[in-house]
């Protein structure tokens, strides 16, 4: 069995199984936890829980004014690589084919050159994000191995994919195998590390929004 056969076959199957199984475990074990009833008296004019959740989520999409330090730049940089990742995953024809194989749906792809350009920008934004994590004393203090490894498993698929689509550095089958294996690593790590925020961000920010809309003065 060649490296590419291994990557496309057993490696990807195990990774997908760990990913969906792990995400199901994380979400259900969290959502089915017993909830403590909020016995505090709601402040006058408090919105419904749903509105509070929506407001809380929207409210956290941008730093509050006056934004402290370089918060606007850091937020903007995060948007760049998040949107970049979405464009890469959902826009490249090869990725759409992979997703079609899983879900049976297909959509129009973006030009490969455009996706490559977005990949370069995404990589640059991810490097800036790492630099900020290393340079900012507060962020560095609260960063753990989990954060750095999550960054690593995100960067490697982008870099290896860029090389594969450009046919640079090695034979295509080797580059494609490395790329698929790096995606497998990302999928395996996803439910257990900080990457789980892709699902949990909706829960945590909504929960915070509900809490803040009910109590205190509101922001």
């Amino acid at each position: 069995m060649s490296l590419l056969d291994f990557a496309r076959g057993p490696a990807l199957q195990v990774a997908l199984a760990v990913f969906v199984g792990g995400v199901a475990w994380r979400l259900l074990s969290l959502l089915l936890l017993p909830w403590a009833r909020d016995r505090s008296v709601a402040r006058p004019g408090a919105p419904s829980a749903l509105m509070g959740a929506v407001h809380g989520f929207v409210r956290h999409l941008w730093p509050p004014k006056p934004a402290p330090g370089n918060a606007v730049f850091v937020t903007l940089n995060s948007y760049v690589f998040h949107f970049g990742l979405a464009v890469i995953v959902l826009g490249l024809a090869q990725h759409i084919l992979f997703l079609r194989g899983l879900f049976g749906v297909q959509w129009a792809n973006l030009p490969s050159g455009l996706v490559s350009a977005v990949s370069v920008v995404t990589l640059a934004a991810l490097v800036v994000a790492l630099a900020h994590r290393l340079v900012d004393p507060v962020v560095r203090l609260i960063s753990t191995l989990n954060d750095y490894f999550s960054w690593f498993v995100t960067v490697v698929p982008v870099a290896s994919g860029l090389l594969a689509v450009s046919h640079l550095g090695a034979r295509y089958e080797t580059l494609l195998a490395i790329h698929i294996l790096s995606v497998a690593l990302l999928l395996i790590w996803f439910p257990f590390g900080k990457l789980m925020h892709a699902f949990l961000v909706f829960l945590t920010r909504s929960e915070t929004g509900i809490l803040y809309s009910r109590r205190g003065g509101g922001i």
């Binding site: 475990w25 259900l28 074990s29």
Partner: peptide
């Protein structure tokens, strides 16, 4: 995998 993960999640909760 979904079944196993879901069972583990429910058991944990």
């Amino acid at each position: 995998a979904v079944a196993v993960g879901a069972a583990a999640g429910v058991a944990s909760a």
